[in-house]
Amino acid sequence: MKGSSIKKKDYLAGYLFIAPPIIGFMLFSLIPIVFSLVLSFSEYDFFTGEINLIGFEGYARAIEDELFFKSLGNICIALGGVLLQIAVMLGVALLLTAKVKGVTFFRALFFIPSLCSSVAVTLVWKWVYNYDFGILNGLLTSLGLDKVGWLIDTKVAMISMIIQGIWMGIGGGMVMYIAGLKNAPRQYYEAAEIDGANAFQRFFHITLPCVSPTTFYILVTTIIGTVSDFARYKLMNNGGPDYSTLTPVLYIYQTAFTSQYGYDYTYATAMSWLTGLFIIVLVAATFISSKRWVHYSV
């Protein structure tokens, strides 16, 4: 009897505490999201208010749309870079938790890219990748190598964007890993050393599992972030050369907000829901797999 009233108290507290974000979501996000969902199934004239439900026509059109498919392919390439990005984040974090003098200074250095406005940073990278007088090609020619068309060659362009993405994006995950590493219980390490475990074993069996909750968060948010990333693709090359850096969100933006595809807002909503579905499937897969490799310490 006492048990059930405590449980009810728990339920009340539980729901109450998550109420603010839910209310916020319902006030500010739900309506726009539902509106855009309905829009994706219809042809809506914003000016006259006429709405025609066309069912899945918009979605069917998106599926047959070569460019949309190409953009999905491009984003899959970018997603391939996600694991690399996480590895770099962890590696740098490990480096920055070392007990060496001046490590605080280095921590700031590695984090500076994330502090700058992304517009400014993107523009700087445009110069870095410039074929004629960019930093990278300058370095290559001074070593006697050929210049590379970083943003001009269709085979290289997406990879250039991935590298830029890693540079711009590791700040967040790196900081979280540092916090996570610092809070890994010391007893485990000490016990392991007494047992004679070497550095690799300690890393794989203690460090990785201890930061797995953080890894899970970083993995999910990086997947979402990589697919949603659009401003820099627009600024760098606007999807070029020959659509090799066209991402789904950029294509959606061009369709909805520019004259390139005739300001076709309703079609863009259909594509964005497909893209959202794509992300949700990936995130769900991550969630499901997380039961295997994420360890929450007790």
């Binding site: 199934f41 042809e43 025609n52 439900l53 066309i54 069912g55 899945f56």
Partner: peptide, 9 residues
């Protein structure tokens, strides 16, 4: 949605 597909585009 399919069942309410009315009118011309």
């Amino acid at each position: 949605a399919c069942s309410t597909n009315n009118g011309d585009s």
